[in-house]
């Protein structure tokens, strides 16, 4: 059975490096998505990716099962670099 298809959205510096707002990807869990991204984009993207916050739909994965959090069809993963401002 195919892994679920999820949307991966990029923000700020990561969006600039990915060259697009979002991609679609098939992945069983967050770890699969990270693996896919690391093989799809360059070193510079991966350097920023390491430090990013990751939200599954509307919840930070640190409050779920981290990278082992399972994904289901239609989920959206949001990946954001750390930031400041205000």
């Amino acid at each position: 059975m195919d892994k679920p298809e999820v949307t991966v959205r990029f923000y700020a510096a990561l969006r600039a490096r990915a060259g697009s707002d979002e991609i679609l990807c098939r992945a069983a869990n967050v770890k699969d998505v990270i693996r896919h991204l690391k093989s799809s984009f360059g070193t510079d993207f991966n350097r920023v990716l390491n430090s990013c916050h990751i939200f599954l739909n509307e919840e930070n994965i640190v409050f779920m099962r981290g990278v082992s959090t399972r994904l289901k069809e239609g989920d959206t993963l949001h990946i954001l670099p750390p930031t400041g401002g205000g």
């Binding site: 700020a12 510096a13 600039a16 920023v48 430090s51 670099p81 750390p82 930031t83 400041g84 401002g85 205000g86």
Partner: peptide, 15 residues
């Protein structure tokens, strides 16, 4: 990364 890239590119609106 914050003061050299995010804030210059996106301003405080990055938040």
């Amino acid at each position: 990364p914050t003061t050299g890239e995010t804030l210059p590119k996106y301003g405080t609106a990055n938040l």
